[in-house]
């Protein structure tokens, strides 16, 4: 039981607990805040797996940008109160049981797998650092990189076009 194990168990429990809180809390603002906790735990997992750059990107992009966008929209729509109505209890139970059954099957399948090279080092090596990543990204992965820039441009244009106010004010605007 060294420090890596302690950190691993702590981060796992934190991630699972906060993910459960995301989907069970009635207030959307609380959901967003718990989701940020989940992202920090996942970033901790990335650091344990020696992918430091990915951990930083995860915090900056997810917890920094996307979650601020979510919070902004929730505040804009005045949803920061518990508006979620009570749902069909049977539907909830059916969803929980079906999901847990599939989880059980997958865990059983995982348990029997024998994977070679399991003893890979967790906490050493420098391959996840930014220098190696940058060299690889701009040589081997330069085409997907450029394609993703086109994707961002089209997503930006699409978001502006869709989110723009409709020119006809009689279409039921508030």
């Amino acid at each position: 039981m060294n420090i890596t194990h302690v950190l691993f168990w702590f981060l796992s429990v934190l991630a699972l607990f906060s993910a459960l809180m995301v989907i069970t809390s009635r207030n959307p603002v609380h959901s967003v805040l718990w989701l940020i906790v989940t992202f920090f735990a996942i970033s901790g997992h990335y650091i344990l797996l020696n992918a430091q750059f990915l951990a930083i990107v995860n915090i900056i992009v997810y917890a920094g940008a996307i979650m601020v966008l979510f919070l902004f929209v929730i505040m804009l729509m005045n949803l920061n109160k518990s508006t979620e109505p009570k749902k069909n209890r049977w539907l909830q139970w059916a969803g929980a049981i079906a999901g847990l059954c599939l989880l059980l099957v997958l865990v059983a399948a995982l348990k029997d797998t024998e994977i070679k090279g399991q003893a890979a080092q967790v906490n050493e090596g420098e391959i996840g650092l930014i220098k190696n990543l940058g060299k690889e990204l701009f040589s081997t992965y330069v085409v997907p990189f450029e394609i993703s820039s086109i994707l961002f441009l089209s997503a930006m244009v699409g978001a502006v076009v869709i989110g723009k106010a409709s020119p006809n004010p009689s279409e039921g605007r508030a």
Binding site: V22, I23, P28, S31, V32, L35, F70, V73, I74, L79, T83, E84, P85, K87, L91, Q92, G95
Partner: peptide, 10 residues
Amino acid sequence: TRRNMITMLM
């Protein structure tokens, strides 16, 4: 199970 679109996106 959620019916709120923001929560589904999360």
